[in-house]
Design a protein around this nucleic acid. Structure first.
Length: 975
RNA sequence: GCCCUGGUGGCGGAAUUGGUAGACGCGCAGGACUUAAAAUCCUGUUUGCUGCAAGGCGAGUACGGGUUCAAUUCCCGUCUGGGGCACCA
């Protein structure tokens, strides 16, 4: 009876399915554990070998916790709304609902194949109306709430209205429009529209304006991903930044709490750091510069102490005041510059700092302290979305300001004395401020305080905390997302849950179902496709919002739905959320470090504030698995030869259309060696049947690389025949190979994705080696949190290990060979050490070393067929290789399932050591190895060591300066 | 450009809290079994010098410095791979 993994795994899966062993109840006396994976977006490429890395880790942990007696919630679902399905629909006409369904079915099959212990009865799909009903419901809670800064929590908007009615907004400053002030009388005099406009400035979900990529030719808004090299990915049309009305979530109100409560989370420091940086809290001041009695510009600065070094102001080109302040002479130049900026992404604007651009508005502002005239410029390095969208430039103290001043020859005021050389800015916060009137001679900290005081006296500035975090854009002009439960009546947006005065119509119930469409073309004026469906948009009460929610809407709360997935009166019952509470372990990639994780945290806090949840952080412990990258393969096609003939002119020889590919090694050679290049050119002419009159002197080649599917490549060697058949245009391909006839591809490590042709499907691995091998191999690859390119090399070793394990229990001829013979001391030591190590390794998520330990264990147990050792071992390995564990468990005569067994406890007496072989060093260099009892006295050890021949030799007769003995570690003699 | 993160044999990696660098596996080399192959098992495998051998001596964790009795581990600087940068998910 050999290790027939295919049969073993099928039997185990059938049994688990039949007995519903993974179904978990909300009622249990056991302690709970909630172990969650970041659910996948079901892409058309299917699951690749990178996805399961985290899933296997969480599966091992979930199974282990279960064996340890926990009631474990370990669910899975699908993040099913998103852009790729819609793009695919645009290309092929297939409805996203259809392709999504198909992709989910494929994912499910692939996941099942690997043998995860998910409770599929709790599956959620964000595109299911029964699910997004509650996404819409939560949106309405956010829409109907505001943030009370005094109580530091979200509250219902009707409580805000009550405040307005009694006292106006004096005690509740408006987050959306700081200058808005009114008393109760004025509030009551507002029209309904005016009142709702005011409320909009307070709501946690609100409407505002944002810059988006706009493509005139496609008539649509594009995602950053859809803009490649400054043009649309689809059709290569020009694009520009355009301001459009959008929905937002007022996450900035939560900035402080999102920073503060990071402290109570068991997340990696790196992850917390990324969130802190993303939120980007900075202390500083807001300073007002007047341009005229009517016009002033506020700037935010983290260095108010440098105010005497201000040589100019810079506004973001999109700043609202630019048009008002620009002088007639500068109008044309400013317009031209603004047009240029419209074509630039934020990324480009931030990263290309060496390329200084900008334009003078012609206007001057008055310095609030010196009252000097300061020129006002605009430049792309100032972003509209950060701070006030305007800065005071201090070239002697800021790199970018300095570069700007130098580029435009603006005189620089030095406020740092010798520290500023004139060559580069002095941006350090150490030192003394000089040349600064009453601030001269002060440290940065003191000068900051004095200046803020002065500004506040003058009324031209104030202390200010600024966050880099921006409110989250929450609408997309797309089809495949959650519709908003919003209806416009006379242009005013209402939530579908509110009673509307003067309107007898009911606004409707949730869910607002996504209507079916026949095409996915954008609506008029850049609206989403929903705008095309008139009889959906038009209701008796008013018009529906035609935007849809972004991809992250559904994923911001899905972990709550798993707790009570079939509830149709609440998003989840309070009993269920109280019981399961926070996610105890959340596993996913760092690519979600700031998006998904931040939004989920905000939603949880808002739901907590509004009284729907008892906890205000969703994920107690977070583990980031590294990304399994693809290793892409490239072929290089020869495009062009240049050769220098007798005339001395470079002559181009275009050979692109001859489909000649050059092996990687040859290409490298030809690039560095002119003789090789020349031979190569002769060869190319032969292949292409070209005759050239002369070939002289220098030859160089141009090649272009393109990706080739990884399964057409064996290691780095291209399977040339398969390559020809891959695509019709390759049929005529000719190859210039290495001298041994092989064609070698270029390689590059990058994200695994369909478009890069580097996807490896886990199904293929499972079919060849079995799920248990696949699971253990992925864990064996390395630490869970480290990224690495996929490589199948080495899987044989893990497979061999499982076969070896199997042979401890069963024999090819006799079948089960387990005996009831008593185990030896050594065997028990091996077993108990393994139990201990595996338990510890799982708790610290060191799964790769667990696999090593299993290998060591099985090697040591070679020839042991004793039940006393093998039965516990089957349970210990169950989290890693559940199928073989189940089979062995049953073979040993057990009933039930190994999934429900108890994880064995190790016995101290089998794992304790009482002596240790110490490395003995002299001056830090190991010179001998000596064994001592662990409880030996230091004096005895010292005596023995100093008497040792080798040690004496290395001490060279010098006196002992220090004797270092670290128990259970090492001994060092310093002379 | 900014933020986060990694860099250890031919390869994946181990070394958990500053304490014997290279566990475990792959690959490779040699051997056993076999008519042969597969499968399985055994031995060796960081590197230089040295020795018939057992061994001995030295170097070595991207690079350059530093702290320490002791550094893969801590600090400073440099190079370099990966992820993110707000409408991919």
């Amino acid at each position: 009876m050999e290790y027939n993994f295919a049969k073993i795994e099928k039997d185990a899966k059938d049994k688990w399915a039949k007995e519903e062993v993974y179904k978990v109840s909300n009622d249990s006396a056991k302690p709970k554990a909630y172990i969650l994976d970041m659910f996948p977006y079901p892409s058309g490429a299917g699951l690749h070998v990178g996805h399961p890395l985290g899933y296997i880790a969480s599966d091992i942990y979930a199974r282990y916790k279960r064996l340890c007696g926990y009631n474990v919630l370990h669910p899975m679902g699908f993040d099913a709304f998103g852009l790729p399905a819609e793009q695919y629909a645009l290309e092929t006409g297939q409805h996203p609902a259809v392709t999504t369904e198909k992709n989910i079915a494929r994912y499910r099959e692939q996941l099942d194949n690997i043998g995860f212990c998910y409770d599929w009865s709790r599956e959620v799909r964000t595109s299911d109306p029964n699910y997004y009903k509650w996404t819409q419901w939560i949106f309405l809670q956010l829409f109907q709430s505001w943030y009370d800064r005094k109580e530091n929590k979200a509250r219902p908007i009707k409580e805000l209205v009550a405040i307005f009615e009694t006292e106006g907004n004096g005690s509740v400053p408006c987050p959306g429009e700081e200058k808005l002030h009114f008393d109760s009388a004025r509030w009551k005099n507002y029209s309904e529209k005016e009142q709702r406009d005011v409320l909009m400035q307070y709501r946690l979900a609100y409407q505002g304006y944002a810059q988006v990529w706009w493509c005139e030719a496609l008539g649509t808004v594009l995602a950053n991903d859809e803009v490649v090299n400054g043009v649309s990915e689809r059709g290569s049309h020009p694009v520009e930044r355009k301001n459009m009305r959008q929905w937002f979530l007022r996450i900035t109100e939560y900035a402080e709490r999102l920073i503060d409560s990071l402290d109570k989370l068991e997340w990696s420091d790196a992850m917390k750091e990324m969130q802190r940086n993303w939120i980007g809290k900075s202390n500083g001041a807001e300073v007002r510069f007047d341009l005229s009695p009517a016009i002033s510009v506020s700037v935010f600065t983290t260095r108010p102490d440098t105010i005497f070094g201000v040589d100019f102001l810079v506004l973001a080109p999109e700043h609202a005041l630019v048009d008002d302040i620009t002088t007639p002479e500068q109008k044309a130049a400013i317009e031209e510059y603004k047009t240029y900026v419209k074509s630039r992404s934020e990324r480009e604007r931030m990263s290309e700092v060496k390329q200084v651009t900008g334009c003078f508005t012609g206007a001057y502002a008055i310095h609030p302290i010196t009252e000097k005239q300061v020129p006002v410029w605009i430049s792309e390095y100032v972003l509209a979305g950060y701070g006030t969208g305007a800065i005071m430039a201090v070239p002697s103290g800021d790199e970018r300001d300095h570069a700007f001043a130098k580029h435009f020859s603006i005189p620089v005021t030095n406020i740092f004395g010798d520290k500023y050389t004139g060559e580069e800015a002095y941006s350090s916060k150490t030192g003394i401020i000089e040349n600064s009137d009453f601030l001269s001679g002060m440290s940065v900290a003191d000068a900051t305080e004095s200046l803020i005081k002065k500004l506040e006296e003058l009324g031209s500035g104030t202390r200010k905390i600024n966050y880099r975090l921006r409110d989250a854009g929450f609408s997309r002009q797309r089809y495949w997302g959650e519709p908003f439960p919003i209806i416009y009546i006379d242009g005013i947006p209402y939530g579908t849950d509110e009673p509307v005065i003067h309107n007898e119509h009911k606004l409707g119930t949730l869910p607002v179902e996504l209507p079916h469409v026949d095409n996915y073309k954008p609506g008029p004026e850049g609206q989403g496709p929903l705008a095309n469906i008139e009889d959906w948009v038009e209701t008796d009460a008013g018009e529906r919002e035609t935007n849809t929610m972004p991809g992250y809407a559904g994923s911001s709360w899905y972990f709550l739905r798993y707790m009570d997935p079939h509830n149709d009166t609440e998003f989840a019952s309070r009993k269920a959320t109280d019981y399961w509470n926070q996610v105890d372990l959340y596993i996913g990639g760092t690519e979600h470090a700031v998006g998904h994780l931040l939004y989920s945290r905000m939603w949880t806090k808002a739901l907590h504030d509004l009284g729907y949840l008892s906890f205000d952080e969703p994920f107690k412990k977070l583990l980031n698995q590294g990304m399994i990258q693809g290793s892409s393969r490239f072929v290089h096609k020869i495009d062009l030869f240049f050769y220098t003939g007798p005339s001395g002119n470079a002559t181009p020889l275009p050979v692109h259309n001859y489909n000649i590919f050059i092996s990687y090694g040859k290409k490298k050679e030809a690039e560095s060696n002119n003789n090789v290049a020349r031979e190569l050119m002769v060869e190319v002419c032969r292949l292409a049947n070209i005759e050239i009159e002369c070939l002289d002197n220098n030859v160089s080649i141009n090649t272009s690389s393109s990706r080739v599917a990884v399964d057409l490549v064996d290691g780095l060697e291209l399977k040339m025949e398969s390559f020809k058949e891959w695509r019709t245009e390759n049929l005529s391909a000719k190859f210039i190979t290495e001298d041994d006839g092989k064609f070698i591809c270029g390689a590059e490590v990058e994200k695994m994705s369909k478009s890069k042709y580097n996807v490896v499907n886990p199904d293929d691995i499972v079919a060849q080696y079995g799920a248990d091998t696949f699971r253990m191999y992925e864990m064996f690859l390395g630490p869970i949190d480290v990224s690495k390119p996929w490589d199948t090399k080495g899987i044989e070793g893990v497979h061999r290990f499982l076969k070896k394990l199997w042979r401890l229990y069963a024999d090819e001829q006799q079948g089960l060979i387990v005996t009831d013979e008593a185990a030896t001391e050594a065997e028990l030591r091996t077993l108990h050490k393994t139990i201990k190590k595996i338990g510890e390794d799982i708790e610290r998520f060191s799964f790769n070393t667990s696999v090593s330990q299993f290998m060591i264990c099985v090697n040591e147990l070679s020839g042991c067929h004793k039940r006393a050792v093998l039965e516990p071992l089957a349970v210990v390995i169950c989290p890693f290789a559940p199928h073989i564990a189940e089979e062995l468990w049953l073979k040993l005569g057990n009933t039930g399932s190994v999934v429900n067994a108890a994880f064995p406890k190790y016995e101290e007496r089998y794992v304790a050591e009482n002596s240790k072989k110490y490395p003995v060093a002299v001056n830090g260099k190991t010179r001998a190895e000596m064994e001592f009892q662990l409880d030996a006295e230091q004096s005895a050890i010292e005596q023995a060591v100093l008497a040792d021949e080798a040690i004496v030799k290395w001490m060279e007769g010098k006196p002992v300066k220090k004797f270092i003995y670290v128990k259970n570690k090492m001994i060092n003699v310093v002379v």
